[in-house]
Amino acid sequence: MFVNLRCIKKIQIARLLTTGLVLSIVMLCWEDLDHHVVSHVRSYSYRFLVNNHNFLNSSYNLDTNGHRRSFGNSLDPSPLHPYLINQLKKCSNSNDILLLVFVKSSPQNDDRRHEIRKTWGNEDYIQEKFNANVKIVFVLGVHPDLRQRRSQKNVESEAWAYNDIIQQNFMDTFHNLTTKLIMQFHWATKYCPKAKFVMSCDDDIFVHMPNMVGYLRSLEQKHVSNFWVGHVHRGAPPIRRIESKYHVPMKLYPWVSYPDYTSGAGYVVSGDVAAKIYQVMQILNPSMYIDDVFMGMCAQVIGVTPQDYVYFSGEAVTRYHPCIYARMITSHGHADDVRVLWKEATDPQVERMSKGFLSNLYCTAVKVALLCLPHQRGTYGCLGAFT
């Protein structure tokens, strides 16, 4: 057989150049590759092969002297700060509270709070329309900028007018979100212990309250306990890049995988879990400033596993369509369009569209196009098209 040696040399040279180019790209992008690929492989391997986070009990609990162990840039070791504003009567006259909602807000976000009160967080409307006792509480720290402290007077006036703001004396910053989380579960346990379900969410969340009430009532009929539901993150690795907002240094959390947790944008726990979580919060070191991860750590200790429900959003905005509205529970990223979305999502036409065989078939096709096709990236997973 005749072999063209010149052709072989050209092929070898091409392979050599291609290999060199690939290696050069890998070396240049290694940091990103390590973050997005290697760290996730390690984390998922630990999550699905080992699936054991018993180290949390011994590494993050109180030391022998009853003090919280110090981890890196730890927060104030005290789990509680003084209440500047409290609502002692919010739940005192209610013995049958279906849902207590904590909305994590900031002092300057009064416009978001007003929009929520006019839409999905209108307690009177929920009671009248759905015969459901739902309590909405906005959770605040104090403005971190001393020059903006005049806003405190505005917050106090707002709290007096609406009786739905609680505030503790800590800086309202990203790195104090765990402090705000502890505040929520302390308040739920002490001032609203009879609530059947407790929700924590951001102030740019949209909650489809009619669907939420129906969903929780179905759970209530089943007498659920040890219940925690939301958009679940499984096998998530700590982010080690310093420039990231969610950067967690090795000295704070040296392990390769977080326990399973739900997105902090919005999740629900049963009342018994809220009480257990607060008990654990008094034991675990609150140095983990990513609040939804800290929630996962607490739940791991008490043996509560988060359940994923496809219509709880993660960090993205839902696809806008009546077929989506018919089943949605939450959607994240609605700082400016809450009122418009509330009007569209609760339109009576939405309910009519979801009834009947042909309507269900049509909506399934629409949801497949919105949630399942590769070029579409919605808030909900493809499973939502068939749920």
Rank of each mutant, 00 (worst) to 15 (best):
Q148T: 05
Q148E: 13
Q148D: 13
Q148C: 09
R149T: 13
R149N: 06
R149F: 13
R150S: 11
R150Y: 13
S151Y: 09
S151F: 12
S151P: 00
Q152H: 08
Q152T: 05
Q152N: 12
K153H: 04
K153I: 02
K153T: 01
N154A: 04
N154Y: 03
N154P: 01
V155I: 13
V155F: 05
V155A: 07
E156V: 03
E156S: 01
E156G: 00
S157T: 03
S157A: 11
S157I: 01
S157P: 00
E158T: 00
E158R: 03
E158D: 14
A159F: 00
A159Q: 02
A159W: 00
W160I: 05
W160Q: 10
A161I: 03
A161P: 04
Y162I: 03
N163M: 07
N163W: 06
N163T: 08
N163S: 12
N163C: 07
D164P: 01
I165T: 02
I165W: 00
I165A: 01
I166D: 05
I166M: 04
I166Q: 05
Q167N: 01
Q167A: 03
Q167I: 02
Q167M: 13
Q167T: 06
Q168F: 06
Q168G: 03
Q168V: 05
Q168D: 04
N169G: 07
N169A: 12
N169Q: 14
F170A: 09
F170T: 08
F170R: 09
F170V: 07
F170D: 08
F170L: 10
M171R: 10
M171L: 12
M171V: 07
M171K: 12
M171F: 14
D172T: 14
D172G: 10
D172R: 11
T173Y: 09
T173M: 11
T173V: 15
T173W: 07
T173A: 11
F174R: 14
F174V: 14
F174P: 04
F174T: 09
F174Q: 14
F174C: 08
F174Y: 15
H175D: 10
H175R: 15
H175S: 12
N176T: 12
N176S: 09
N176I: 03
N176P: 03
N176H: 07
N176V: 02
N176A: 06
L177S: 12
L177Q: 13
T178A: 11
T178N: 11
T178C: 06
T178W: 12
T178L: 13
T178E: 08
T178R: 13
T179W: 06
T179Q: 15
T179G: 13
K180Y: 05
K180I: 07
